[in-house]
Simulated scan of single mutants.
Amino acid sequence: MADGQRADARRNYSRILAVAEREVAVHGAGASLEQIARTAGVGSATVRRHFPTRRALLEAVSRERVEALRVRAEELTGRDDSRAALLEWLGDVVVYSVAARGLAAALAYDGAPADPVHENSCSATLEEAAAPLLHRAVQDGAFAADVTVGDLITLIVGIVLATEHHPDPAARADRLFRMAVAGLGPRG
């Protein structure tokens, strides 16, 4: 019986996650948990058992994209131009975050105390992946020594969340990201 229950729980998890991916793609981080439960054919309590917080659900939905960003950081590590490599990766994070509605919310730091059971695994994965890129850029003098990956992710989250409802969020987010990187001085 226990194996049947576990198999049922795995099926529920997979079904909930598939529905959540579709709902988050359409409605963003505010996708209705009740609608996800109804569409998946389970109760709200079942959704909450698998995903005790909205962030846990968003992280699960974002896991594949975050893994792709981790792999991309590895590919860019070791390039000759460390500034360009880090900026290319950060640009990829912007593009992914705009395209994957809900990823920015999954990456956001909400100031809540750390919860070791439900830590922000998306942010932790990206911070670990980008650390070698940033370290090299700092060593090369391309970035200030006090800049952290957390700072850069927070900047991107802010830009993506601020442009989420713009008629062309990708173009607007890219423009603001490029402005933040270049600074606001005259271009000459």
Results as ranks from 00 to 15, higher is better:
G158Q: 06
R72K: 11
L86K: 01
M1S: 12
I153T: 06
D115F: 02
A60V: 05
S123P: 00
T39K: 14
R72G: 06
R11Y: 15
H50I: 05
F51C: 05
S62L: 00
G185T: 11
A171N: 03
P186A: 08
L152V: 12
F177I: 02
D115C: 00
P186C: 04
A73G: 04
V61D: 00
F143E: 08
A104K: 00
A106I: 07
A105C: 08
G41Q: 12
L133T: 04
I156A: 02
S82W: 08
A173S: 07
G185N: 05
T77Y: 13
S121Y: 12
E67D: 11
A99L: 13
V26N: 08
A100E: 12
A9F: 12
V98N: 00
R11C: 13
Q35N: 15
R48Y: 12
V95A: 10
E127M: 09
T154D: 14
E128N: 15
C122N: 02
T125C: 13
D151F: 14
N120T: 11
L155Q: 02
D151Q: 10
A114N: 03
D146W: 13
P113Y: 06
G183K: 00
L76Y: 08
R48L: 08
D151T: 13
R101W: 08
V47Y: 01
V66N: 02
T163E: 01
Y13K: 08
A31K: 02
A162N: 03
D81P: 11
L103Q: 01
L86D: 03
S121W: 11
A29E: 05
A68M: 11
I153V: 15
R79N: 09
A131T: 15
A104V: 06
A37L: 07
T46L: 06
A20E: 08
D8Y: 15
G188K: 05
